[in-house]
Amino acid sequence: MDEIKKEIMKLEKSAEKLKKLAKDNNAIRKNAEIILTFLYILKFITPTVNKEA
């Protein structure tokens, strides 16, 4: 699971960068935002189990 979580974080950074780079291109920016939506879900379904909440 740790490796999966690392990959999700990498994807998030990359999608954020893509969104910034495409600030003048609606189509690319929107698709980057959609990737970020699914990254929100991916993070939600791979929660980190802390000892203390």
């Binding site: 699971m1 379904i45 791979t46 929660p47 189990v49 802390n50 000892k51 909440a53």
Partner: peptide, 22 residues
Amino acid sequence: WNPYTETLPREKLENIEFSYFK
């Protein structure tokens, strides 16, 4: 569908839910 979350021990699930709740 998600073997990771669907088989977590209760204590861990409650810990996660409490964190999400806050």
